[in-house]
Amino acid sequence: MDHHHHGHGFDYDRMAEMREKMVDIKSVLEFMNIKKEENIADIGSGDGYYSLIMAPLCSKVYSIDISEDGIERENIKIGKNKIKNVETLQEDICKMNKVPDVDRVFFSNSFHDFPCMTDIIKKFTERNKPIFTLIEFKKDSVIGPPSEIKLAPEELDSIFLKNNYERKGIKFFEHNYIVNYSFHKSTN
């Protein structure tokens, strides 16, 4: 049984406490401007914190995480709160052949962990051309992984640009930032 989240031991309760302090959820939701008819994939969803916040605002959330512990915790919350439109998938997104067809792909402090970043973008883009919304740690933040693992906005830009996505807005928090990418047709 693998209780590690992308290779880091994971303390969900501590994570939750930190997350509430770090990122103002109202600002995140305002920035995302979720539409009622949207389907959203929450990748590296952990215990489903964001999935459950986004659920009432959209049509459906696919909550995808490799951790059995995270998914179990989320399923308990879904049951307790009788949430009907969140589907949990215990999957390694890098190995997942058929990803759900969604309007938005969301990552909270998880994108930097995936060895298959470009693959993830390609898989979802083949199904649809979703908006990608990412919360990431600022490079110089004292929290989060070592700075060489963190992704600066410019680094994210270049990863997404290679896949025909351009940045559409960014907002900075104390330790993190949130950014949207939208697909654009290449002109050449």
Rank of each mutant, 00 (worst) to 15 (best):
I78K: 11
E87Q: 15
K60E: 12
I83C: 05
N164Y: 07
E87V: 14
K171R: 06
G144Y: 08
H184V: 14
R104Q: 01
M96V: 07
I66D: 06
I64H: 02
F160P: 08
F31I: 01
I159V: 09
E166H: 13
H4M: 14
D69E: 14
L89R: 10
H175I: 07
I53G: 03
A152N: 13
K80G: 07
K36R: 13
K36I: 10
E17A: 08
I93L: 06
L52I: 05
A55Y: 06
R73M: 07
S182C: 14
I159P: 04
E74H: 10
K26F: 13
D42H: 00
K162Y: 11
E154Q: 15
I178Q: 00
Q90E: 15
H8L: 15
I149A: 14
V99W: 08
R73C: 05
G44E: 03
F183I: 12
L151Y: 05
N81R: 13
G144N: 09
G169T: 08
F137V: 03
I143W: 05
M54T: 03
R104I: 02
P130G: 07
I178D: 00
C58W: 15
Y50L: 02
S67E: 06
N109E: 00
L161S: 15
N81G: 08
D92H: 08
H175T: 08
L52E: 01
H6Y: 10
I43M: 02
R73L: 05
L161I: 13
P130S: 11
N39F: 15
E72R: 09
K77R: 14
M15H: 02
L57R: 05
D42E: 01
Q90K: 15
E126R: 14
G144P: 06
K21G: 07
G9M: 14
K77V: 09
K185T: 07
